[in-house]
């Protein structure tokens, strides 16, 4: 039997977990504090661990001096559309991979896995030229198309795991009642799998929201830039305006943080399914 924890091990556990928590959360705390300092006071010693007076000047500046509002709208649009389409497409492919045994199945899975192991930069040049030919450079449509393709392999593998947890008697019953396979999938399976689908969608969304290198390569007008591209623009200049930078960072991180916090349980479930069941 596992006996009760000793005082010593309990104390060490609390200390260790506290340190981990502090170290994990501190960078976020610090960037929030920096963003709330008045621009002048960021570069003054000694450092304040709590702003003397809270100022929203950095945030206001972000929206008045740069097109940050536009970048946010762009990111929101690109990430939402790409994540939605990718999730829908992956739903179909994951269904096939989860439910049927066919000869190319291993190869398809292998091909999806392989996309995750090869450095993406090999593809960057040809991708750029291809998009030039399609006239989709510096276009949100172009970026969305690429993001969909980037999301599909992972999303398919994740959703496949969720499908395998749902008995197939469910959609068979629906099909006997006269549903087509497609409508059985959407009317019967999708509602049951909603947590898993939501987690996959959120994962896609966050990946697209955060994606940097493709966006930097393809987008160059203010009208089309996404947030990461704009942030990267902040460092190409020699002096970084850390006030605006941290305000921008907070605005970028907080939305993803909120949705991740809600979905973390399901995302963990999706990632570790199988291991838990042994």
């Amino acid at each position: 039997m596992i006996n009760k924890e000793s005082v010593l091990s309990r104390t060490s556990k609390i200390i260790f977990l506290s340190i981990c928590l502090i170290v994990t959360v501190f960078p976020l705390y610090w960037i929030v504090i920096t963003s709330l300092k008045a621009p002048g006071t960021i570069y003054s010693l000694p450092l304040d661990y709590w702003p003397k007076e809270i100022s929203f000047e950095n945030y206001i500046g972000l929206f008045t001096k740069s097109d940050f509002g536009q970048y946010m709208i762009n990111s929101l649009l690109v990430a939402t559309v790409a994540a939605t389409v990718a999730t829908l497409i992956s739903l179909l492919s994951a269904y096939v991979l989860a439910r049927f045994q066919f000869s190319g199945r291993g190869a398809v899975l292998g091909a999806f896995l392989l996309t995750q192991m090869i450095p993406g930069f090999i593809a960057l040049g040809p991708l750029y030229m291809m998009m030039t030919n399609f006239d989709l450079v510096d276009s949100k449509t172009g970026l969305i198309l690429i993001y969909i393709a980037v999301c599909i392999p992972f999303c398919t593998i994740m959703l496949r795991g969720f499908f395998e947890n749902v008995p197939d008697a469910l959609e068979e019953a629906a099909m006997i009642d006269g549903c087509s396979r497609l409508s059985a999938l959407f009317r019967v399976l999708v509602p049951v799998m909603m947590p898993g689908i939501a987690a996959s969608f959120i994962f896609n969304f966050v990946n697209c929201w955060n994606e940097l290198f493709l966006s930097v390569t393809l987008m160059n007008s203010d009208e089309n830039k996404t947030i990461p591209t704009a942030l990267a623009g902040f460092i190409s200049s020699f002096n970084i305006d850390w006030g605006s930078m941290s305000a921008a960072a907070v605005l970028t991180v907080v939305p993803t943080l909120v949705i991740f916090a809600f979905a973390s349980k399901f995302i963990v479930q999706g990632l570790t399914a199988g291991a838990v069941k042994g």
Binding site: V206, L231, W242, F260
Partner: peptide, 27 residues
């Protein structure tokens, strides 16, 4: 666990920026 999960929501690039600021020599 939800708190510890936080780094995952942040992009690698932004993490780099956060730490670049924290490791700033002067401030």
């Amino acid at each position: 666990q939800a708190f510890i999960f936080f780094p995952w929501a942040v992009s690698g690039f932004l993490i780099g920026m956060l730490f670049r600021w924290m490791f700033n020599a002067e401030f």
